[in-house]
């Protein structure tokens, strides 16, 4: 079964969508969209470093993303002009990454693969790494869910309940770096933030509880992955962007439906 590239692609897409859903909800609730961008864009620098030293792309991307995420996390705790700073870091990380890649012989042609993903080329080994990361993230989310939610609502409320909000922030940061590393192959660094945010934002109008929203986001993400792959196969469009397009349509549908219902 795993011999079929479409099956492997589907499994990879669904896996990443499942992991991105609960994490994406926190990114939306805590207004960390730029944070996601900075972490994801930094990954291209990690890719360049891995290729230069012929090591695993996952490991390189994970290491650099993690460093970026921790840096951004530390900075945002200090009340600087976070929005501007994140914008600077997100885009300069991408620029440095692209420049670094250009120094490598023979990689330039593959650049699109890392920017927009190459889900149809997912190998069995990739699949194992992706699902390892996915299960790790889901386990983290499941374990820390209530504490994360309480810390997201209000830091003092968390303190009073014996939860350290800084620790929860760190857990989110690590999970975000892991999802970036496993999602590169699926949607590429430019669209990872989209995979985090769009399913969650699509789920918001049709959810009553945080858990409901995470489940719904997972459903929308998984369907987007499968449908996007199908469309990409039928119409010969790039797979990663096709997945995001389907998710974006889901966002439009649920949010417009809510507007209409609100007016009726």
């Amino acid at each position: 079964m795993l011999d079929d590239f479409l099956v492997r692609a589907s499994l990879a897409g669904v896996g990443v969508a499942l992991a991105a859903a609960p994490l994406g909800c926190f990114v939306v609730w805590r207004r960390m969209a730029y944070f996601g961008d900075a972490t994801a864009h930094a990954a291209i620098l990690g890719v360049a470093i891995s290729l230069a030293f012929s090591t695993s792309v996952f490991a390189g991307a994970l290491a650099v993303s993690l460093m970026m995420a921790l840096t951004v996390s530390a900075i945002s705790g200090r009340g600087l002009a976070v929005d501007t700073l994140l914008g600077v870091m997100a885009h300069s990380a991408l620029a440095f990454g692209l420049v670094a890649v250009s120094f490598l012989q023979g990689v330039r042609l593959d650049l699109m693969v890392y920017l927009f993903g190459d889900i149809l080329a997912v190998s069995q080994g990739d699949l194992a790494v992706i699902w390892g990361g996915v299960l790790l993230i889901l386990a983290l989310m499941f374990w820390r869910w209530s504490a994360l939610l309480t810390a997201t609502l209000n830091q003092d409320l968390a303190h009073a309940s014996g939860i350290n909000p800084r620790r929860e922030q760190l857990i989110l940061t690590v999970a975000l770096a892991v999802v970036v590393a496993v999602a590169i192959k699926v949607v590429g660094v430019l669209l990872i933030a989209a995979l985090l945010i769009i399913p969650a934002a699509s789920a918001r109008p049709v959810s009553r509880t945080p858990e409901g929203m995470a489940m719904m986001a997972a459903g929308i993400g998984a369907v987007s992955a499968l449908l996007g792959l199908r469309l990409s196969y039928l119409y010969d469009t790039p797979a990663g962007p096709s997945i995001i397009c389907v998710a974006a349509v889901a966002f439009a549908v649920t949010n417009v439906a809510q507007l209409v219902r609100g007016r009726a």
Binding site: L149, R208, T209
Partner: peptide
């Protein structure tokens, strides 16, 4: 307590945070 509008939360669910 400012609850972000993107966070759906019923009173019962809020009461059960974190336990």
């Amino acid at each position: 307590l400012s609850i972000d509008p993107t966070l759906p939360l019923t009173v019962n669910r809020f009461l059960q945070l974190p336990r």
